[in-house]
Simulated assay, not measured.
Amino acid sequence: MEIIDFKILESLTKDAQKSERRRKNMNYHDGESDPVQRMLNAFEPGTYVRPHTHLNPDKREVFIILKGKLLVIFFNEEGAIINHVILDSESEIYAVEIKPGEWHTATGLEPGTVVYEIKDGPYNVLDDKNFAAWAPEEGGINAQYQLKQWLDELHLDI
């Protein structure tokens, strides 16, 4: 049995806040070969996740909000925003399922944001994500600028 409580969320949040990436995950699956990847994922404001999709092999990805607010942005093939959702238990939007082939990114909108993430496995670093050529690499000089542009386009502040 695994219990996810406030202490675990707080510990993960502290680790994310100390991380250069501004996020941190805690795995619950039994390893990379597990057919269902399950984890807690803490997203602090300002974390940049390079837009990607999951194809070849096709994988679904699900985010369920546990604490805070998570912005998930969807793009077309050229990198234009086509949709977005803010997961926030107070607004009663609790989860999003991302289908294979949907270009997406996510970032925290408030400190202490933690989601339960579920993704089809197995995990293979070589084919887990298909990164968007039209978006800066994580840690690159333009990554934070790009994140700010998306937030401005959606009229959101962090």
Results as ranks from 00 to 15, higher is better:
K7C: 10
K7I: 10
T13Y: 01
K14W: 03
K18N: 13
S19Y: 01
R21D: 01
R22V: 04
N25H: 08
N27T: 12
Y28L: 13
H29A: 04
G31Y: 08
S33H: 13
E44L: 06
E44F: 01
G46A: 07
G46T: 08
T47S: 12
Y48H: 07
V49N: 07
V49I: 11
T53G: 12
N56I: 07
P57H: 05
D58W: 04
K59C: 04
F63A: 06
I64M: 14
K67I: 09
V72H: 02
V72T: 09
F74M: 09
F75Y: 13
N76Y: 03
G79W: 02
G79C: 07
A80V: 15
V85N: 04
V85F: 04
L87P: 00
S89D: 15
E90K: 15
E90S: 14
S91A: 14
S91W: 11
I93G: 09
V96D: 00
I98K: 04
K99Q: 15
K99I: 10
G101V: 00
E102D: 11
A106Y: 07
P111S: 09
P111F: 10
T113M: 06
T113V: 02
V114C: 05
E117F: 00
I118F: 05
G121F: 04
P122I: 03
L126M: 15
D127V: 12
K129E: 02
N130A: 13
F131H: 10
A132Y: 11
A133H: 14
